[in-house]
Design a protein around this nucleic acid. Sequence first.
DNA 1: AGCGTGTTATTCATCCGATCTATATGACGA
DNA 2: TCGTCATATAGATCGGATGAATAACACGCT
Lengths: 253, 253
Amino acid sequence: MRVTDEAIDRIKQMIVNGELRPGDRLPREPDLAARLGLSRNSLREAVKALALIRVLEVRQGDGTFVTSLDPSLLMETMGFVLDLHQDASVLEFFEVRRILEPAAAARAALRMADTEIAALRKLLDDLGPEPSVEDLLTSDVEFHRLLAVGSGNRALASIIDSLRQPTYRARIWRGLTQDDAVARTLSEHRAILDAIEGRDPEVARSWATVHIAGVEHWIQDAVNLDEERPPRELRKASGGSVRPLRRATPAEY
Amino acid sequence: MRVTDEAIDRIKQMIVNGELRPGDRLPREPDLAARLGLSRNSLREAVKALALIRVLEVRQGDGTFVTSLDPSLLMETMGFVLDLHQDASVLEFFEVRRILEPAAAARAALRMADTEIAALRKLLDDLGPEPSVEDLLTSDVEFHRLLAVGSGNRALASIIDSLRQPTYRARIWRGLTQDDAVARTLSEHRAILDAIEGRDPEVARSWATVHIAGVEHWIQDAVNLDEERPPRELRKASGGSVRPLRRATPAEY
DNA sequence: AGCGTGTTATTCATCCGATCTATATGACGA
DNA sequence: TCGTCATATAGATCGGATGAATAACACGCT
């Protein structure tokens, strides 16, 4: 195995077996490199890789630390990978959302604290009856995030969060093209919250399903329409060969 | 922003905008470094990070390539992160499985091809009535994998796959301690498959729920028992301070 | 002509050592 | 007491040198 890969594994093992705990600081680069028996450059490759997936956090002039390892950090990694999938597979991710979010809503109805519900209610009330598309999207993201967290399952919440990332821009497009999207979103959000407040998991689940499915169907139609149009070129490759590029998808807007 | 982070982003953008496509080869290290305006060492840190999350694949003596970017590659990354969470949060991940796997089973009942169902049937038949624990686990992993793939949603399948990873060892423990676990697993697998064969999504979903919940409850009990026992030390830190380590959890077995 | 083998070029792997930059810390003076 | 500045520390980045794996090609044998 490559020394760098081995270093990644060694560091990982140090965390798994408890030698390094969340928040702990790693030895200085030269020391750790010596201890693991490799050069500083190779060690840095390992550290960089672990930093990308949010296992380590490097602070220049301070040191390298183990992150909290909170499941929510998983989100960013997944979001990064999902950014690479902006084609038809968006629909696949959407389908997963339609599975997870209703489940989260149902659990939230059972587990959410009254104070959390009040905060959610305030979020919706603060928005007003006719918000700008921008404000709506901000509120929408926060609503779904709080709902996911309200499930009481951090892993579930972070997976949902990471799945929303790539569909964020899709919803922007929606807000811009469907006139009734704003009103509909508002009323559906309130319906979900009402069900949670009433501690009715099945109703919460159903409203969440309706809510997600509405967006999903719209995306589906948009993709289908897009398939029928001829591909258009996005832009030319900068340095080298010019090749036809993939088709634009809703997720890009 | 650090040059390395910028390089990561630049490479990512090259993929997102289609300049680099799955399977494509990147320019030689020196060339790409020159083009991105940084040193080879720094570029290598970026490449290593992207290789860890399976976006790039480096082949010594050959070159560096963009992977297929298949959603199933997402699995390995997630599995890596999940390895770091071997404490009580295992139950959180298990709960997500209990949401996703029944949903996958229901979809499989609707979407799976007859040939795929036949393959699944053969998998179960090949195992025989009283398999070894080892064989059972191998078959079990494959059964659930095919089931997930049968959902027709690669993203869903890969998330389920990645979630199973950390519970694999948990099930080993189960197989060793519960005498009826083998027979029960076998019959539940057959029940799920029967429902799929009968194209009955609701029954498939229910059997899958029962199946997962069985394991989940057992793990839950095991963790609770474990909580009541005093923590035991796993082993001492090698180089530095000796500190009490976290408690062992079922996932370690 | 077909095929196996050895050579060579290409490309990544790894290392070393030096310099630059950001951060934290503590000394110093208003 | 508090703000400022010097200094130590640790990571950031670089350039170059050498080793190792792979692929491509030429060669010679059958």
